[in-house]
């Protein structure tokens, strides 16, 4: 999956939990202040992401993510780790 496709997929998932539409989401947005996701909703988003891409993201790492860019970076990092483990 390309970075662009991954980012678009993450935006779609965020739009499911937030009232902000996917085309209006930007990388610099903050999960709480700009997307209106409280701490539980933010963790739910990251868990959905981990489930969809079968990523093993530690709870402590997920708890540090506060922005859209951070979410994308976390997904990219763990997808790369997964690919490396497979190869």
């Amino acid at each position: 999956m390309t970075d662009d496709l991954l980012t678009q997929r993450i935006f779609s998932m965020m739009a499911e939990l937030s009232t902000v539409r996917a085309p209006d989401i930007r990388l610099e947005h903050r999960l709480r202040e700009d997307l209106g996701l409280d701490s539980v909703c933010s963790m739910e988003l990251l868990s959905m992401l981990a489930e969809e891409f079968e990523l093993d993201v530690p709870m402590e790492e997920a708890a540090q993510v506060t922005t859209v860019a951070g979410t994308v970076a976390m997904a990219q990092r763990h997808l790369a780790l997964k690919e490396r483990a497979v190869s």
């Binding site: 739910e44 990251l46 868990s47 093993d56 993201v57 530690p58 709870m59 790492e61």
Partner: peptide
């Protein structure tokens, strides 16, 4: 719960 669900996936 965390081990069975592999980290943050426990929240599902």
């Amino acid at each position: 719960l965390q081990c069975e669900a592999k980290g943050v996936r426990a929240l599902n």
